[in-house]
C-alpha cells in the first residue's frame, strides 16, 4: 500500500571530494502537496533535487520515491522512475534545435507509441494549459524568457508526472511572468494530482503558492513550516531571508583579512 508521502528523504549526506554539501537531511513530501525548498545560492538545494532525480549518489542515507530507494535502482529502473517525474530547469532547457511543438511532443514520441494525430492533440492541450497554443510552430529562440519557461512547463508535464520538480522556476522573470508561472505551478499541481517541489530563493512569490517550506543553509535544514509559520518566524536567519535584510547571520562581507592592512598593501 502506498505510504502517505511520495518522497521520503532520510539522513541524506553528500560530499564532493570530502567537502560536505548535504548533511543529515530529513524531508517528507506528502502526496498532492506543493513543497518549497528555500535557501541561499549554493546551499545545496539543486544538489538535493539531483538526488531525487537519481543523477547523484548519496554518501549516506537515501531518497525514497514512491516506495523505491532511488540510488539502488539499476539503469532501466531509474529510467522507468524518471518517466514518472518531470523536472523544470532553471532557464527552461528547451531543446534549441526543435520547435516548440516538437519540444512538448518529445517525451510522447520517445516513450509512447501514440499515433501522431493523438500527439498533435495532446501537445496543443498542454500548450493551451500554459496559454501558449499559438506558439507551437515557433523555435525556442523566438520566445521571451517567460514564454520559454511556460513552454518548458508544458513539456515537463507532457506525460502527466506524479512528481514535478522545479529548479529556480522564477529566476530572471519579469513581475508579470513571475505571477503567471507561480499560478501555473499551483494549478498544474492541483489539476494533475501531482506532488511538486519548488527549489527557489524567491520568497514572496513562493510563500503565496506552496503548502510547506523547508529552509536550508550550508547543507542542513535550518527551519521548516507552513508559509504562515515562516512569515511569523522569529529566527534570525529566516527573518533576514524573508525580509531581505542586508546584514544578519548571513554577513555582507566575505571573510577577508584586516581591511586596513589590505589597503596599506596597495599604497
Amino acid at each position: 500500500m502506498p505510504s502517505k508521502s511520495l518522497v521520503e528523504i532520510r539522513d541524506l549526506n553528500f560530499a564532493y571530494d570530502k567537502r560536505p554539501v548535504l548533511e543529515g537531511i530529513n524531508m517528507d513530501f506528502p502526496r498532492g502537496k506543493l513543497i518549497a525548498i528555500m535557501g541561499l545560492s549554493g546551499c545545496g538545494k539543486t544538489t538535493l533535487l539531483r538526488h531525487i532525480g537519481g543523477a547523484l549518489k548519496p554518501t549516506k542515507g537515501y531518497v525514497k520515491v514512491d516506495g523505491q530507494i532511488i540510488h539502488e535502482l539499476d539503469q532501466s529502473g531509474l529510467y522507468a522512475m524518471r518517466r514518472k517525474m518531470g523536472m523544470l530547469f532553471q532557464f527552461g532547457a528547451l531543446f534549441t534545435d526543435m520547435s516548440v511543438y516538437d519540444n512538448v511532443a518529445f517525451q510522447m514520441r520517445e516513450h509512447t507509441d501514440l499515433p501522431e494525430e493523438l500527439i498533435h492533440d495532446l501537445v496543443l492541450m498542454k500548450l493551451h494549459a500554459v496559454g501558449l497554443r499559438g506558439t507551437h510552430s515557433l523555435m525556442p529562440s523566438e520566445l521571451s524568457g517567460g514564454m520559454a519557461r511556460r513552454v518548458a512547463l508544458a513539456r515537463t508535464v507532457a506525460l502527466d508526472p506524479m512528481l514535478i520538480m522545479y529548479d529556480e522556476p522564477f529566476a530572471g522573470l519579469d513581475p508579470i511572468s513571475l505571477t503567471v508561472v507561480g499560478d501555473l505551478i499551483r494549478r498544474l499541481n492541483n489539476a494533475l494530482g501531482a506532488t511538486s517541489v519548488v527549489v527557489t530563493h524567491d520568497v514572496q512569490e513562493s510563500l503565496k503558492i506552496v503548502d510547506y517550506v523547508y529552509f536550508m543553509a550550508n547543507g542542513v535544514i535550518v527551519a521548516e513550516g507552513t508559509p504562515d509559520e515562516i512569515r511569523s518566524s522569529e529566527r534570525d536567519f529566516v527573518r533576514q531571508f524573508v525580509h531581505g535584510e542586508m546584514d544578519g547571520p548571513v554577513p555582507f562581507h566575505y571573510p577577508g583579512g584586516d581591511y586596513r592592512q589590505d589597503l596599506a598593501l596597495g599604497v
Binding site: R83, M85, M87, Q90
Partner: peptide
C-alpha cells in the same frame, strides 16, 4: 557544448532519454 551549458542534456537525461 551549448546544449550542455543550457542544461538541455541534463534535461534529456531527466526525461529518461
Amino acid at each position: 557544448g551549448l546544449m550542455k551549458a543550457t542544461e538541455q542534456i541534463t534535461a534529456m537525461e531527466m526525461m529518461a532519454v
